[in-house]
Simulated scan of single mutants.
Amino acid sequence: MELPETLRRRLEDFSRTVLFDQSRAEPFSEDGDTFLPHDKQVLSSLQLQMSLYFNMWFFPWWWISETVMLQLKYPALSDYYKFILVTILILMTLIEAIRLYLGYAGNLHQKVPELAGFWLLSILLQFPLILFQLFNEAILIQPLERGVHIILALFILTQALSGFVALRDMVRHTESQFHLRQFN
């Protein structure tokens, strides 16, 4: 059984004004009268994707410079800082590989769980670890280290902010799809 045309139009108008954020692109085709499927919208964040792309190319340079600087200052460090810095280097390498993969998968494929995992790894693990390396003077920070840590911290901060916005938009989109399916 199909709904009458006037009732269908009123439901479409209602769902557009109540359920959808008006700041987003209108779900209409160019002729203005055909309703496009709501699940065809692209929600990937260009800013997040660009930041992930450049971070992917920067991270090997960060790793090489961090390894060289750690090797140069290793004899001058106390034993517990030697252990802490080697552990941080290994952890950050593993976390960064997982984080970049989750960021790519979550953003490009518009998957909420992957993007949420990426965001949590960024905020809870990578950002505190890079801030520890950036601001703890007891680890004998070298100028090259300070420079690459600042760049990596800016990447992580940018990705955390743009990842939050992309995640919020994807959750809202998923929620609106759920509400639309209730009408069908």
Rank of each mutant, 00 (worst) to 15 (best):
V68P: 07
V68G: 02
V68A: 10
V68K: 12
Q71C: 07
Q71H: 13
Q71A: 11
Y74C: 00
A76L: 06
L77S: 03
S78E: 14
Y80A: 03
Y80D: 12
K82V: 00
F83N: 07
F83V: 06
L85N: 02
L85D: 01
L85A: 00
V86C: 05
V86Y: 11
V86G: 05
T87M: 09
T87Y: 13
I88K: 06
I90H: 05
I90T: 09
L91S: 15
L91V: 15
L94V: 11
I95Q: 15
I95T: 15
E96Y: 09
I98K: 11
R99Q: 12
L100I: 12
L100C: 07
Y101F: 14
L102N: 08
L102H: 10
G103L: 04
A105S: 12
G106Q: 02
G106D: 07
G106T: 02
N107H: 03
N107C: 01
L108E: 10
L108Q: 13
L108R: 15
H109E: 11
H109P: 02
Q110W: 09
K111T: 08
K111H: 13
V112I: 12
V112S: 05
P113D: 03
E114F: 10
E114T: 04
A116P: 06
A116V: 00
G117Q: 08
F118W: 09
F118Y: 13
F118R: 03
F118K: 01
L120D: 12
S122L: 04
L125Y: 15
L125I: 11
P128S: 06
L129V: 04
I130A: 05
I130N: 01
I130T: 05
L131R: 06
L134R: 03
F135I: 00
F135S: 00
E137H: 09
A138T: 13
A138P: 09
L140H: 09
L140D: 06
L140W: 14
Q142Y: 15
P143C: 01
P143S: 02
P143H: 04
E145D: 08
R146F: 13
R146Q: 10
R146T: 07
V148C: 05
V148D: 08
V148F: 11
H149Y: 13
H149D: 09
H149W: 08
H149V: 00
H149I: 00
I151G: 01
I151Y: 07
L152E: 13
A153R: 02
L154M: 08
I156M: 01
I156E: 02
L157E: 09
Q159D: 10
Q159E: 14
Q159C: 06
A160I: 03
A160P: 08
L161K: 09
F164V: 03
V165W: 13
